[in-house]
Amino acid sequence: MRVEEILIDNIPGISKGTASFLCENAVVCLSRQKHHSGVEMKCHGINDQPEVIEWVTLYTDQMNRSHNDQEVATEYGAVCISILYALHHTDYTIVQRSRKKTGFDYWLGNKNDILFQNAARLEVSGIFDGEKMVQARVQQKLKQVGKSDNTGLQAYISVVEFSQPSISFVKK
C-alpha cells in the first residue's frame, strides 16, 4: 500500500490539496516514529494479512514545522491510512465527506450512488504512540457507532496506531 495512492486515486470527495495534506500527515507520523518506507503494518478486523506501507514523499524540516501539532497530524495521518485501507479491502470505491463538530465525517460509497445513499460511515481514530490503547479505542468507537444500528446504516471503525504500525479495521 503506497501512501501517495491517495493522490492518484482521484477520490471524488477529496480534492488534490486535501489528499496531499492527508498524505503528508501520514508520512510525518510514520517518520516521527522512525519508520522507513516498506514498514510492515499489522492488520486486524476484516483482514488479518499484514500490509506493507511505502512512500516516496520526503520528510523535510519544512514539513515537520508545518505539522507541529502532533494530535492533528495523528488524526489526519490515520484518516489517510484508513481511506487507503478501505479502498483496498472493501467493495466501496468512493469517499465523501460531511461536516461535523470537530472536522469531517468520512463516508464510503459506490460509484453509482447518489451522494450518501447506501453510504457506509468510516469512523477513524489515530494513536501516535500507544499499542496497548488500540483495543480499548476500538471498543469505545464500537459503542458509539452502535447507537446507529436501528437505521441500518453501515459503519466501519478504523483505529490506526503509528509506533508499532497497526490498523484495526472493523465492520459494525
Binding site: I114, L115, Q117
Partner: peptide, 8 residues
C-alpha cells in the same frame, strides 16, 4: 434525492 443524503 433521498432522505438520508438530505439529512447528512
Amino acid at each position: 434525492v433521498d432522505e438520508f443524503s438530505e439529512a447528512v
